[in-house]
Simulated assay, not measured.
Amino acid sequence: MKSEILPGPVMDANKLNRRNFWDTLPSLWNSESEDTLDCCQVRVETHDVKSFFFATPDGSAFAFQPGQFITLELEINGEPVNRCYTISSSPARPHTISITVKRVPGGPVSNWLHDNLKAGDKVRVMRPAGEFTCAAHPAEKYLFLSAGSGITPLMSMSRAHHDLSDDRDIVFIHSARTPDDIIFERELGLIAANQQNFRTRFICEQLGQRREWSGPTGMLSLAALRLMAPDFMEREIFVCGPAPYMKAVRNMLNEAGFDRVRYHEESFSFETLQQETGQAIAVNGAATANKESLASVGFEINFQKSNRQIVCGPQQHVLDAARSAGVRLASSCAQGMCGTCKVKLISGTVDMQHKGGIRQREIDQGMVLLCCSKPLSNLVVDK
């Protein structure tokens, strides 16, 4: 499907001059001092996928590793909502940064972005974070495996190698529902045409409307993997996609006897995680309702606004203890990445091991992420 650029406000000459794209080397964007970015372009990638491009107001440049993510801080229906999205753009093009979002049925954030965010809008964004990157695992030969919108971090890696003229031996196999659902199909073809050692393969579950499709159909299997990447056992493998896809790939590689030291995966869909979180609250609450171990040892957590008190074990994350006690708290990733569970700590101390979901200035102001904080004393939380 041909990409379509949605119309937006024309950038005036003064604003363009302030960016100084070509006159000087830009400074690096610091989200601690400037956390608001300008949406400068929206592209339609497929019938239910859009890419959103952002730039800094002062023209400063973005620095990140391909495969990392950013966290958007949005307000939807009057409620603050945080979501992490993998960066799809190349770090070798530092003046803009992009995310590519699939519209998820019932997903509050993806639908809001598709229906509302346009060029000229401003969005609060937290700095790039994450450890899923080929930059941390240099290899002569890579195998990229993705499904659906899981293509985005691997697209960032592919774009980076292409932009840097690094003709690395890469096989990129992407699974899609139909040929019309293949994200970045034409661009991946262009990269393959420009890079002698970059090969891309697509496998589609169904034909859909494109009856002339000549590629393979069905689900990725070990037999198909051996046909498309005969030497996959020698490659560094990066995988991203929905949970069932990830599980199927792990099973395939285990069956083949692949060395998992050279296996790397990333899988977080915050549109579905909230539903899973709600289920986890119910399950965990039922499973621990009759347990009394934490009542005899641990710290008292006082949620001041809701007037709730719970007991949290010294090796237990506060969010887990709250869930077990039936306290409903906003959360998404449960890994210290997205910032959804951020609260003000009125008193007490915690051991917080986050992964980029909170700014240093917020920590200095007494904010904590409950999902990755273990109590070191009794706590009073402004919640």
Rank of each mutant, 00 (worst) to 15 (best):
Q195P: 05
F303Q: 01
T217I: 13
D351N: 10
Q316Y: 15
I183A: 06
N116T: 15
V109H: 01
V350I: 10
S146C: 10
R361L: 11
L28G: 08
L37N: 03
L220A: 05
F258D: 03
L207M: 09
Q274H: 12
G107R: 04
H317Y: 15
I237K: 00
E276F: 12
L273Q: 14
L376R: 11
G78I: 14
C333A: 06
G59P: 02
N82M: 08
E271T: 00
I183M: 13
E212K: 09
I346W: 14
V380E: 12
M246N: 15
T217L: 08
A139E: 04
M11S: 05
L369Q: 09
K141C: 11
E140M: 12
K291Q: 13
T100D: 02
D169G: 09
A334D: 10
D320I: 14
Q304Y: 11
C341H: 03
A139Y: 05
N20S: 11
R19E: 01
R323T: 03
P7N: 06
D320A: 15
I346P: 06
Q360C: 06
Q365Y: 08
V318Q: 04
N77W: 07
N254D: 12
N307D: 15
A223I: 13
A147V: 04
E266N: 07
Q360D: 13
I281F: 07
G356V: 04
V123Q: 02
P66R: 02
K102Q: 10
R250E: 15
E255N: 11
A248F: 07
